[in-house]
């Protein structure tokens, strides 16, 4: 071998050894709960506390969208115990027989779950899912740069903000905004209504910089975008850094989204998963987690434990009349195709 080859080989071996060492140091030896969730979606200290109390290890794996996660699990990927999909996806996963029932006797803390929230959700009896964190989709804007702002979806009609606004690249959220603007349900199965909503969104599209799910947070913080369609929890985090960012729920109505804790049918550690759900709904733990994530945990006993600013936040706890205008996205099964068609036409329109 030439000396160069020796160096390269030595480099490769050194890198592999370093990685291996890392791996050995960090790899678990106790019973392992595999928690498949969004990044930064649980306070790390709470994970450690549960690990200590139950003599186990929690391995966090992350997914970036409900759809990619579902495609993977549906195709047969296994090994995960506990997941946090959004409720419309929970319904689909349950219909497909991918989930196991929740055993109430193992989760006594379910008595704390907010009944007011359960009334609007899909799995009202918590037979196969337990609500974890609750958010909503609405509009954020820069109060220092946008004049005469109205809390309404029609802001996307404003030509003076052309090129500085984004909406979510999500067929149900964005067509849903169109449906709400027209006064329809965002779960409409009526083709005529969906077509009308499509035309509204095509009109908005001419003023948008792009359809976008990730960069709108940094975009509104830096002033690249002045009005964005996005999720409340994220926007509250942006607001903590830049007080010029305000988030509103449009008067025509908005999306309530809840991520639920579910246990996969073939979960290797089902008992541990139940124990973890119970832990997360301990009022003290739920409150602590809400403070970390800036999302509301629908746990009634935890509300009084929240700090004043969260407790009085109109986004986390909308006043009654606004709360009534929120809607949860349902999976529409075969009628999904109507939205696919409308969304294709939105994308193709000039």
């Amino acid at each position: 071998m030439t000396s160069k080859m020796k160096w390269a080989a030595a480099g490769a071996v050194a890198a592999a050894l370093t990685a291996g060492l890392f791996y050995a140091l960090l790899s678990p030896a106790r019973p392992v709960l595999h928690f498949y969730t969004w990044a930064d979606y649980i306070k790390p200290e709470l994970v450690e506390r549960f690990e200590r109390e139950h003599g186990c290890r929690i391995v966090l794996d992350t997914f970036d969208s409900n759809e990619t996660m579902y495609a993977k699990i549906k195709a047969g990927a296994s090994g995960y115990d506990l997941l946090t999909p959004t409720s419309y996806m929970v319904k689909l996963m349950n219909d497909q027989g991918l989930l196991q029932p929740i055993r109430r006797d193992l989760v006594p803390n379910l008595k704390h779950v907010d009944p007011e929230f359960l009334a609007v959700t899909i799995d009202r009896t918590m037979s196969h899912s337990v609500p974890y964190l609750l958010g909503n989709a609405g509009i954020a804007y820069r109060k220092d740069r946008v004049e005469k702002f109205e809390p309404s979806w029609t802001v996307f009609d404003r030509a003076d903000l052309k090129g500085r606004m984004t909406m979510l690249n999500d067929m149900r959220e964005t067509l849903g905004a169109g449906l709400k603007t027209l006064g329809y349900s965002l779960n409409s199965r009526d083709e005529r209504q969906i077509r009308e909503a499509r035309d509204v969104v095509i009109r908005w599209k001419r003023n948008l910089a792009t359809f976008e799910n990730e960069a709108y947070k940094s975009g509104i913080a830096s002033g690249e975008f002045l009005v964005v369609h996005g999720y409340g929890g994220d926007m509250l985090q942006v607001q903590r850094e830049n007080p010029n960012v305000l988030f509103v729920l449009p008067k025509e109505g908005y999306v309530i989204c809840c991520d639920d804790l579910v246990i996969l049918k073939d979960a290797p550690q089902a008992a541990l998963a139940h124990a973890f759900i119970n832990f997360l709904h301990d009022p003290q733990v739920a409150a602590e987690n809400s403070v970390f994530t800036r999302y509301r945990c629908p746990n009634a006993a935890a509300y009084p434990l929240l700090p004043e600013d969260l407790r009085n936040d109109p986004i986390l706890f909308p006043p009654k009349d606004l709360w009534a205008r929120g809607e949860i996205i349902l999976d529409l099964g075969a009628d999904n195709a109507k939205y696919v068609k409308a969304w294709d036409e939105v994308k193709a329109a000039r």
Binding site: Y41, F63, D64
Partner: peptide, 25 residues
Amino acid sequence: TFFVAGAGSTTLPIHIYSMIKHGSP
């Protein structure tokens, strides 16, 4: 990678994609 990663074998790009949606880049 996302499709073929097993439980406990999250790689850096997988984690980054989730962080971009939900966390702190």
